[in-house]
Design a protein around this nucleic acid. Structure first.
Lengths: 224, 224
DNA sequence: GAAATAGTGTCTATGAGACAGTATATA
DNA sequence: TATATACTGTCTCATAGACACTATTTC
């Protein structure tokens, strides 16, 4: 059977960049510059570049850098959304990736015009099936967050257990007991202490021990 | 930007049909009829049919029926595998789905020539990146199996707790305490008793209570 | 009644949440 | 010294595994 016997489906990639801002889980949206839906806020995405990209994961990382200036972020494949109606241009399949933007990178990102950081609950009414994608990304991160090091990737490289604790609470959307959190997190053994202390940014009192993710550690396979 | 400015990637779908045979987790492979790799055993797959398929999940269900005669099976998207080297025909993306074939359907399936049921551990050396796909499917089912109703879909509609227990052990590849299994499984509340008893097929003694999955129940979202 | 599988009851170890208490910095 | 956050210790309750026990059928 000839592979071009039928009309072909178009392949694209969309990225759901998640971050925390003002103690809320947020998604980064971009003003669309071209049709369809020019001018509307939507997820960052693009077509695969055959000569350059070695995988759809490469495409995701490339559009993140080119369209939002985000580099070296944690990127993971979410799911592929497909069908004749999700894009007015015709039958498409979009491989969706979510990524976690550390707090420190967010200020640099916001310098770019046309980018917006929106709480995930308020990112509705988006074009294409981007509402579904955002919801799926949040659901995935919540599901994995309960037993993974994933929320730590929303923090700068060095952080305190208090900050990490608050991050887990924001991501999971529920209160977490502090003492059991400390126990669990040190048992999981994906953190390492940094010799030297740290102060909280606000008018804090006692400084806390700084930690970082153990280099190269991840519970998850990074296959795209 | 014109959407056909670049050479386009080809979109296809592959399916990993899992089942249990002789107390082992197995995958169904098919002899390839066309190039590349004609005559080799590989996963079932095909191109999206633009006019017919309403999603890649539809493509998965269609090729399952057309190429292996499997209908009404549990199908779930696994991951999308992409790149310039995975298929000798060029840059492709394959959306992989796994499905769970109940024991009762397997005999019908095997009537078809060119189909083979192979223990997952022995399904190696496959063409394309099908080794990776099989491994990813097994890993996903094992991961989800620990807290889901998913292994029950490898059994006929009616089954005993003993059979279900053995199925979980086979899927997870480890011994599971029987009394805690019974406790957990009834608490999870996705089974319902069937009034009337059941005998084990072998030279069994006491018959056991028959159960079925509560209609419509699934812990998981079935988004494609 | 013997055998074999089905199903139940109970003890114990582990782990998480609740919460009180201690420690160490700033102002 | 007052205070706010960092961190620790202990109690209790829930849950899972171990395992012994009972139940019901076939042969």
């Amino acid at each position: 059977m000839d592979k071009h016997e039928f009309e072909r489906a178009d392949l694209m990639v969309d990225v759901i960049p998640l971050t925390i801002m003002e103690d809320r889980l947020c998604v980064v949206l971009a003003d669309r510059v071209s049709e369809p839906y020019a001018g509307r806020r939507a997820l960052i995405g693009g077509y695969v570049h055959i000569p350059d990209d070695r995988s759809c994961g490469d495409t995701a990382r490339r559009v993140l850098e080119q369209k939002a200036g985000m580099r070296d972020v944690y990127v993971e494949q979410l799911s592929t959304f497909s069908g004749p109606d999700r894009d007015p241009r015709g039958w498409t399949a979009s491989v969706a990736y979510y990524c976690l933007i550390p707090l420190t990178s967010i200020e640099d990102v916001l310098i770019r015009p046309g980018l917006h950081v929106v709480p995930v609950g308020e990112a509705t009414g988006l074009p294409f099936d981007h509402d579904t994608m955002v919801a799926a990304a949040v659901s995935r991160v919540r599901g994995k967050g309960a037993y993974s090091d994933l929320p730590a990737r929303l923090l700068p490289q060095e952080f305190s257990l208090g900050e990490l604790h608050r991050t887990y609470e924001i991501v999971l959307g529920e209160r977490i007991d502090e003492s059991s959190f400390r126990r669990k997190i040190v048992e999981r053994d994906f953190l390492e202490q940094i010799d030297g202390l740290m102060k909280t940014v606000e008018g804090a009192k006692r400084p806390s021990q700084a930690y970082r993710l153990r280099p190269g550690f991840s519970i998850f396979d990074r296959r795209f």
